[in-house]
Nucleic acid binder design. Sequence first.
DNA 1: AAAGGACATGTACTTCGGTACATGTCCTCA
DNA 2: TGAGGACATGTACCGAAGTACATGTCCTTT
Lengths: 190, 190
Amino acid sequence: MSLRYGLLGLLAEGPASGYDLARRFEEVLGQIWPAQHPKIYAELRRLADEGLIEVDAEGPRRRRAYRITDAGVAEIRHWLTAGDVDHTIRVQPLLRSLFFWLMQPDDLRRHLDEEARFYAESAARYRAFAAAKDRGDYGDSPQVRSMRVTVEAGIRLYEALADWATWAGTVPPTGAGGPPADADPDPELT
Amino acid sequence: MSLRYGLLGLLAEGPASGYDLARRFEEVLGQIWPAQHPKIYAELRRLADEGLIEVDAEGPRRRRAYRITDAGVAEIRHWLTAGDVDHTIRVQPLLRSLFFWLMQPDDLRRHLDEEARFYAESAARYRAFAAAKDRGDYGDSPQVRSMRVTVEAGIRLYEALADWATWAGTVPPTGAGGPPADADPDPELT
DNA sequence: AAAGGACATGTACTTCGGTACATGTCCTCA
DNA sequence: TGAGGACATGTACCGAAGTACATGTCCTTT
């Protein structure tokens, strides 16, 4: 359901084609809210059927740009204020971390190094984005200010994960490595 | 695919039934890796078919506990070391934040307050969990130490989000509220 | 003895996201 | 002028996740 509102929200900034929207999703939301172009085109058609967006212009290579309608703006505003927030975050690396005790210490060390590097790079990427915005490279519309807030969340999230991976690699003697614990494993569960 | 390894990993700690696993997923992973019981039972059957787990015991009310096999341990170890990490995190609140400029300032303020509270509570819940572990309430097996690492990530993630929501509510005069910008909206995209 | 609640497992259906594959269009550069 | 690449849109299918609904079992309490 969120893709729908993602598209609506981006279109609220101005007309765009499916291709544009796919690019924007990739740019800003690549890691935070991925969307594939087939889904985008399909959803745009559905939104158009419901009158929440309409064709704005047809361009060169079959390009079709859409514009948000008043009904569409009302719809996304309603979602933003009345819709309830989905707080589930699926973070595969955290699921993995539950099972670190199954890894050989040096495999674990390597894994955590890579993770830390990845998150640090992501944070840096968002930080660069934020710096560009703070320099005024994108002007100062309300949209840009909102984007800046989103980017700040990205920075903080990735910094937190980078710090965590670093901490996990150094602080506790986490990994075990040996054979699976077969001596009285968690009797509470049997 | 991750549910599969989640189950395998939990079973590596000791035998458990689908019901136990559903409870553990809910307890520890509730917000970070949700799983519904129908999926769990189905996946357990599939894992048993493939010989990665086997029936350990049948209990009272149709209860069927599974035990991980050597092949299962090998499988999850392989996933942990050789499988590649999925770094996509879907955070709906961040998607929403891109569109804060569409909200009325007081709606936005209310929204951010609620978000901050929610994240702070989540962080506190994980912190309590961590404190119990550090007190030694759960003993000190490798499994418990891994869980502690996972919990630490939860704490840091939720603290980061709580701080972010608070910051977003106070620092910048984010929201706009007025009508959708129809004066030259993002010409780069048309 | 009956009733209610926690324990325990499942089927069926829907929706959503991901991947593979296919196609058409225009511009640029050798 | 022909080839390659970016632009642009789509179909088809699959697998994962979510929701609703259904059922059976055992224990505790009144």
